[in-house]
Amino acid sequence: GKMTGIVKWFNADKGFAFITPDDGSKDVFVHFSAIQNDGYKSLDEGQKVSFTIESGAKGPAAGNVTSL
């Protein structure tokens, strides 16, 4: 299901971020390909987002990341 959280930090050079979920679970890795914005895919620290949890090769990662 959809979860919500806050972007903890975003590394534009490497194209990934971490989200701190609102439910208090541990921070979730985000690859820029999961960001659903049109055009430039970036996130801002402190931004509120919704996302799903996908199981990636290196463990859980956020999918369908959308700005709220």
Rank of each mutant, 00 (worst) to 15 (best):
G1V: 12
G1M: 13
K2E: 07
K2P: 08
K2H: 09
K2W: 14
K2R: 13
M3Y: 07
M3N: 04
T4K: 04
T4I: 05
T4H: 05
T4V: 05
T4R: 05
G5C: 03
G5E: 00
G5T: 01
G5L: 01
I6E: 02
I6V: 13
I6P: 00
I6R: 10
V7L: 10
V7S: 00
V7P: 00
K8Q: 06
K8A: 04
K8G: 02
K8S: 04
K8N: 05
K8M: 06
W9C: 15
W9S: 05
F10L: 12
F10S: 11
F10G: 01
F10E: 01
F10H: 03
N11Y: 06
N11R: 04
N11V: 04
N11W: 08
N11K: 04
N11A: 07
A12H: 09
A12W: 09
A12I: 13
A12M: 12
A12E: 06
D13T: 12
D13C: 15
D13N: 08
D13G: 08
D13P: 04
D13R: 09
D13Y: 09
K14M: 07
K14P: 01
K14Y: 09
K14R: 09
K14V: 05
K14G: 05
K14L: 10
K14I: 07
G15P: 01
G15N: 06
G15F: 06
G15S: 07
F16N: 01
F16R: 01
F16M: 13
A17Q: 00
A17R: 00
A17M: 09
F18T: 04
F18W: 14
F18N: 03
F18D: 01
F18R: 11
F18G: 02
I19R: 00
I19E: 00
I19F: 01
I19V: 07
I19Y: 00
I19L: 03
I19M: 01
I19H: 00
T20P: 00
T20F: 02
T20Q: 10
T20I: 09
T20N: 02
T20R: 11
P21Y: 04
P21R: 02
P21H: 01
P21A: 02
D22C: 14
D22E: 06
D22Y: 03
D23Y: 03
D23P: 01
D23A: 02
G24R: 02
G24S: 03
G24P: 01
S25T: 08
S25L: 03
S25A: 04
K26P: 13
K26T: 08
K26L: 07
K26A: 12
D27K: 03
D27Y: 04
D27H: 04
V28G: 00
V28L: 13
V28F: 07
V28H: 03
V28K: 04
F29R: 06
F29D: 01
F29L: 14
F29Q: 05
V30D: 00
V30L: 06
V30H: 01
V30E: 00
V30T: 01
V30F: 14
H31A: 14
H31K: 12
H31I: 09
F32W: 12
F32C: 10
F32S: 04
F32V: 07
F32Y: 11
F32I: 08
S33G: 07
S33I: 04
S33D: 07
S33N: 08
S33K: 07
A34R: 10
A34G: 06
A34M: 14
A34Y: 13
A34F: 14
I35N: 02
I35F: 14
I35M: 06
Q36E: 10
Q36R: 06
Q36F: 10
Q36G: 07
Q36M: 12
N37M: 14
N37D: 11
N37P: 11
D38N: 11
D38K: 06
D38Y: 11
D38E: 09
G39S: 10
G39L: 11
G39V: 08
G39C: 14
G39N: 08
G39D: 09
Y40G: 11
Y40W: 14
Y40V: 09
Y40D: 08
Y40Q: 11
Y40M: 09
K41W: 13
K41Y: 10
K41M: 10
K41V: 11
K41N: 11
S42N: 12
S42M: 11
S42W: 13
L43A: 02
L43C: 07
L43K: 01
L43D: 01
D44H: 14
D44L: 14
D44S: 13
D44N: 13
D44R: 15
D44P: 05
D44T: 14
D44W: 15
E45C: 15
E45A: 13
E45F: 13
E45Q: 12
G46Y: 03
G46Q: 02
G46R: 02
G46A: 02
G46N: 04
G46L: 03
G46I: 02
G46S: 02
G46D: 02
Q47K: 06
Q47N: 05
Q47P: 01
Q47S: 10
Q47L: 09
K48C: 13
K48A: 08
K48Q: 11
K48I: 08
K48Y: 10
K48T: 07
V49L: 02
V49N: 00
V49S: 00
V49H: 01
V49C: 03
V49T: 01
S50V: 12
S50I: 13
S50W: 12
S50N: 05
S50Y: 11
S50T: 13
S50A: 11
F51H: 00
F51P: 00
F51I: 02
F51D: 00
T52V: 10
T52R: 06
T52Y: 08
T52L: 11
T52F: 10
T52P: 03
T52N: 07
T52D: 07
T52W: 12
T52I: 12
I53D: 03
I53Q: 06
I53W: 12
I53S: 05
E54Y: 08
E54N: 05
E54C: 15
S55H: 12
S55D: 14
S55N: 09
S55P: 12
S55R: 06
G56L: 08
A57Q: 10
A57D: 14
A57G: 11
A57L: 13
K58G: 14
G59Y: 10
G59M: 07
G59P: 13
G59F: 10
G59K: 09
G59H: 08
P60I: 05
P60F: 03
P60L: 06
P60V: 07
P60G: 07
A61I: 14
A61F: 14
A61H: 10
A61N: 11
A61L: 10
A61D: 14
A61K: 06
A62K: 07
A62H: 09
A62R: 04
A62V: 11
A62D: 13
A62M: 08
G63H: 09
G63C: 15
G63T: 13
G63Y: 02
G63R: 05
N64G: 07
N64H: 08
N64V: 13
N64S: 10
N64L: 12
V65M: 06
V65R: 03
V65S: 06
V65Y: 01
V65A: 05
T66L: 03
T66F: 00
T66Q: 12
T66N: 15
T66M: 03
T66H: 13
T66C: 15
S67I: 15
S67P: 05
S67C: 15
S67K: 03
S67A: 06
S67N: 15
L68H: 15
L68E: 15
L68C: 15
L68N: 15
